[in-house]
């Protein structure tokens, strides 16, 4: 299944803004999450929103601890969502 990455990126940015309680306009992809005051508790909210929307369960692993910027988070989320969807396709 092909995913429209641009649309997915926009959706994810909206989710990060909403769950992390950050102004969407301030959410530049190169910014470190710390600078936006997005903490681990917000992270968990973002991951819950990803699960709710895309069905992908992302647990805290080493990759997640390497996330520094908004772009890192987007890349990881997209990878996990794509992995989840290819698994679902494989099962079907």
């Amino acid at each position: 299944m092909n995913i429209d990455r641009d649309a997915l990126t926009r959706e994810l940015l909206d989710m990060v803004a909403e769950e992390g309680m950050v102004d969407r306009a301030e959410l530049a992809v190169e910014k470190p999450l710390e600078e936006l005051d997005i903490q681990s508790a917000d992270f968990i909210m973002i991951l819950m929103a990803i699960e709710e929307r895309y069905g992908a369960y992302v647990s805290m692993d080493n990759e997640l601890t390497d996330v520094v910027t908004v772009q890192d988070l987007l890349d990881l989320a997209i990878t996990k969502i794509e992995e989840h969807q290819s698994e679902k396709t494989a099962e079907a």
Binding site: I44, Y57, V58, S59, M60, D61, N62
Partner: peptide
């Protein structure tokens, strides 16, 4: 919801541990 459980296998101290 706390995201500390693994959906695969519990691997303490392994590089690929995930809960």
């Amino acid at each position: 919801l706390l995201r500390v459980m693994t959906a695969t296998q519990n691997r303490p101290f392994s590089k690929d541990r995930n809960g």
